[in-house]
């Protein structure tokens, strides 16, 4: 987590060398995350039909689907890279960009829609300066939508770093985000 936090702000899109450098202190120049992925690959016995599970593992370990890792998955599972990319791009939960330090996910299922999920999204966009579906420039917050988290009895629902805020109002959500350490952008905030 810690090194992911620094990479987006570092500008360039090369998290692997940076992470490798960070992990290289101990002589064996291996990124510990590579080992974690190896463990997962062994767990599914390198079976090609476990591709989706493996992609989940890559995303869990690296935070997003890094093209370098997708190539590795293709080699290890003996699949054409096009197949791996095809599957990865098909499913909504896979992301190709690192997420922000914190995430705010607003449920936009039917019950939440009927009860005003739009207003929650608009409030976060407006107050915290992050467009829906994107990560803020300073890498602190990603604002995402979810298709029903299955807590319809509590609609509208939002998640702040995975913690559910039920029967949410804009104020409640902004307070929860504030508690999690997400404030307005340091410079060029709302005027």
């Amino acid at each position: 987590m810690a090194d992911q936090r620094t990479t987006p702000t570092a500008g360039a899109e090369r998290p692997t060398p940076a992470a490798k450098a960070a992990a290289a202190g101990n002589g064996s120049a291996e990124d510990p995350r590579e080992k974690m992925l190896t463990t997962q690959l062994k767990k599914v016995r390198y079976r090609a039909d476990a591709l989706i599970e493996v992609l989940h593992a890559v995303q869990d370990i690296y935070g997003f689907l890094d093209p370098v890792q997708l190539l590795r998955v293709a080699t290890e599972l003996q699949l054409p890279p096009s197949r791996v990319l095809g599957v990865a791009t098909f499913y909504h939960l896979f992301t190709f960009e690192p997420k922000g330090e914190h995430t705010c996910t607003v449920c936009t299922g039917t019950a939440c829609f009927v009860k005003g999920a739009d207003e929650l999204i608009a409030a976060v966009e407006r107050e915290l300066g992050v467009p829906e579906g994107q990560t803020r420039e300073d890498g602190v917050l990603s604002l995402l939508q979810a298709r029903c988290v299955g807590a319809c009895g509590l609609a509208p629902v939002a998640l702040v770093d995975g913690v559910v805020v039920g029967k949410a109002t804009s104020d409640m959500l902004l307070t929860a985000l504030d508690k999690a350490g997400v404030g307005p952008m340091a410079d060029g905030g709302a005027s």
Binding site: L51, I52, E53, H56, V87, F90, H92, R147
Partner: peptide, 26 residues
């Protein structure tokens, strides 16, 4: 257990099977 990855169409029988086999859920 097989885990999806966010695709409504995978509720359809043939798409669901494609997804179980590790493919695109078409």
């Amino acid at each position: 257990i097989r885990i999806g990855a966010g695709a409504f169409v995978c509720g359809e029988e043939t798409a669901l099977m494609a997804s179980i086999m590790g493919g695109r859920g078409t």
